[in-house]
Design a protein around this nucleic acid. Sequence first.
RNA 1: GUGGGUGUAGCUCAGUGGUAGAGCGCCGGACUGUGGCUCCGGUUGUCGCGGGUUCGAUCCCCGUCAUCCACCCCA
Length: 443
Amino acid sequence: MRDFLPADVRRRQYVIGVVAEVFESYGFEPLETPAVENIETLTGKYGEEGDRLIFKILKRGEGAGTGEADLALRYDLTVPLSRVVAEHRAALPKYFKRYQVQPVWRADRPQKGRFREFYQCDVDATGSTSMAVEAELLSAGADVLRRLGFTDFTIRLNHRRLLSAILDVAGVPADLHGTALIALDKADKIGREAVVAEMTTRGVTEAAAATLVAFLFGLTGADNGPALEAIAGFVGTHEGGVAALADLREILTLASALSSGAHVRIDATLARGLGYYTGAIFEIAVADLAGSLGGGGRYDDLVGMFLGQRVPACGLSLGLERILVVMGERGMFPAAVERPPATVLVANFDGGAVGDTLALAAELRRGATGTPLAVEVYPDTDKLGKQFKYAADRGIPFVVVVGTEERQQGQVTVKSLGSGAQEAVARDRAAEYIVTHMGTSRG
RNA sequence: GUGGGUGUAGCUCAGUGGUAGAGCGCCGGACUGUGGCUCCGGUUGUCGCGGGUUCGAUCCCCGUCAUCCACCCCA
């Protein structure tokens, strides 16, 4: 578990601000849900591996002795959303478009870019089966990343029903689809032979595994058009495959006019582990991170598990922590985010005049010409050298000093720590002086 | 859940079966109304926690916790 110190919080708030602004511009509304859910709400939604990683909360009272759990920390934001849609259906619009930026918890071993507690930034739309939803979600995600300064990301696009079709045609029996997909998902990491080996050890026949791998690796590097053609040829008249291909073609057509268009790439090896996806699936990748920056897909049956009535849905999740990791490594944060805590430090020089020192700080905070100033007061009376050093260490660009003589003359001394320049200024002009020198005296 | 690494000063890390060191930082001074540069002097520790072996453990053994890496899986 991590603490976020002030500089961390500023970076996080900056990214979250961009996320919220972009999502709102698409008409998505904010939602928050509790950290804790009933355990039955979460179990059975994510697949076997997912269930294992849910943080469970022991039942109070007698249950504590038995180890029985009745509550759990939320594992993602998609299942809570589905629960909300089912519970509050009457209060929500026909198309519920929401975004949600909150922490989720996974009982995993932490690694680089992987944490037990981490924030997800989810956008989802429920109530529609239109591929317009997929296209807009991908563009909203792409807009966020571009606004943050990313240009080199790839949105891998695939389809659950297409995967099933390909596996069917290759001769993988339906009950082995799950394990075959796990092996397939690792294709870009472990390579062709290893995928075949893993599939055969999991019970897929060597012929089927070889057919599958030969076909999928043959697609590597192909542009979207040729890739779709090759896939169409492979799945032939398979009903699910034909339908899935139609979905993918429509998403590509719609996205081509939007900000995501240039980033989307058909990738028939993308599987995604979560159990609830039913249609299009996607994942956002950058070269310098093994894991993904985000992912998502269509899950038309999840709300129905709570409601008993089918409500189609599709969503995208951006991983805040991973975005922050990459932005930090690449130095992508704007200067305004790395700013010092205050613009001015008022030195506490004369112990007998602390009241006046605070009053001066209050005057300076009002700023000048519509520019308020952030003003910190050095709380203890101390040697000036220490006070200047404190300001310099914190990156505060200006120090204001008032001694007895200056106070009597209505003057203050303003020093710019960047340039080292120092000037005596009329007290009622000090804020103005600082504001006009702010831009040039950094550093 | 599986395998492995690390845990010693505020930080980065050395180290030895006989109760610990460097660099940086920090503090003080040269500079009693001025930070950055320089010089001089000084300080810093339940050696992660619990137990065991031993005359004696920071070092060896067992356990535990934290952290990191890989697997698994994922954002």
